[in-house]
Design a protein around this nucleic acid. Structure first.
Lengths: 213, 213
DNA sequence: TTCATATCGATAATAATCTATCGAAAATGA
DNA sequence: TCATTTTCGATAGATTATTATCGATATGAA
């Protein structure tokens, strides 16, 4: 199994979203062409992406919706459950805990949250219990938690990451706009809102400039 | 001015983050090499990215921190203020409103939020007033708002987007995991958490598989 | 002053990604 | 049965992105 590019993984998740929708509508087959039309990705690219999960389609027909959904979910490891801890129970952390159930359908179970704010400690946010930071390490090791979600302010992010790694965390989902320094065997996935905003605002500026010409 | 790739824009925002940090520390000069070391991007790539903003550096010295920060901010249009409305005042919407002040330093001012939930209407969330959906169109046109932020559940996203476009919105920051269908002159920037999670979980699965071999 | 070094900016080479093309297979309808 | 259409999967070509190379320039030390 060859390693698959990040771009392919992101697109697979997009396709899956559409396929699940088709599944809801009791559609039996779906073609790469129609996925291409829905996403704007070129149809040959869609085929390549799907091929990397190992599925095979039927000419003129496409892929069985159920099988394709299962194949992609499997490939993304969304059918196994991975446990996660989240550090930072502020605005963003709460929002993510609010999506707890959806994330569980995608293989990630948020077991607990951690924060330094005494007001929050020993409460529950969207059914997720909030503990003091000091408890992270012990619990993470006892429960074999592999995923750490970072939703703290930027200045705290690196020290939280260090603490996570010292507790056996192997993958970090980082929502802080900071480039975390970690050993290279550690997986870091960044959700960088500023980068996203940068694309939006520059594109808009260019567009407005062109219009006023 | 040639169009700049999305990847370059995202990296520029990353560099800026580091440059602002250096500015805080009263550092006078910063080199492409050091930005490369901080981000993991190749140093020649950093130079190309910076070149696209028009800045010029000094051999052996690098770039003046202040000038570089200004050049990138300008390039991203973060020194001008753009007004935005946000639709969906739930968990995620609230989280984003919580970052209102930070976003303002990056050129985006969230003027108001809109929701269908009567409990929320006419309240304030993180100082942002929440209005009924019906008021969107009128206000957006009167205030010449160009940016719409979508933080509603996936099933409502397309209709919200349609409503936004009918009200003169030109750029959509979409947090719903849905591929919005819009005319091609409309700018859509997606923040796709599922795609991000897909990368994380697949990479982690591969890693764990390799370890157990 | 001269040399070594760090950096810049430009250009060339490599690698990755995306798009086009083509033959084969399955369905549909004449 | 046989042409037509749609899609698949594979391969080749084109585009884009990344990395390497090289000469030039500023700094600081010998």
């Amino acid at each position: 199994m060859k390693p698959v590019s990040i771009l392919t993984l992101r697109r697979l998740s997009q396709y899956l979203q559409i396929i699940l929708e088709a599944q809801k509508n009791k559609q039996e087959y779906i073609s790469a062409t129609s996925l291409a039309n829905h996403t704007g990705v070129h149809r040959t690219q869609v085929r390549k992406d799907l091929a990397s999960t190992g599925v095979v389609g039927v000419p003129k027909v496409g892929h069985k919706v159920n099988e394709l959904a299962l194949a992609i979910s499997d490939f993304l490891n969304w059918n196994d459950s991975s446990e996660a801890f989240i550090v930072g129970a502020g605005n963003l952390g709460s929002a993510i805990m609010g999506y707890r159930e959806i994330f569980e359908t995608k293989g990630m179970k948020i077991l607990a949250a951690f924060d330094t704010n005494p007001i929050l400690i020993d409460t529950k946010i969207h059914d997720v219990p909030v503990f003091a930071m000091e408890k992270f390490s012990n619990l993470a090791q006892r429960l074999h938690v592999h995923i750490g979600i970072v939703t703290v302010p930027p200045e705290a992010a690196q020290s939280v990451a260090d603490m996570m790694l010292a507790s056996g965390i192997m993958a970090i989902w980082n929502f802080a706009p900071v480039q975390l320094v970690v050993p290279e065997n550690i997986i870091v996935e960044n959700v960088d809102l500023y980068a996203s905003l940068a694309v939006l605002s520059q594109r808009l500026a260019v567009k407005l400039m062109k219009q006023s010409e």
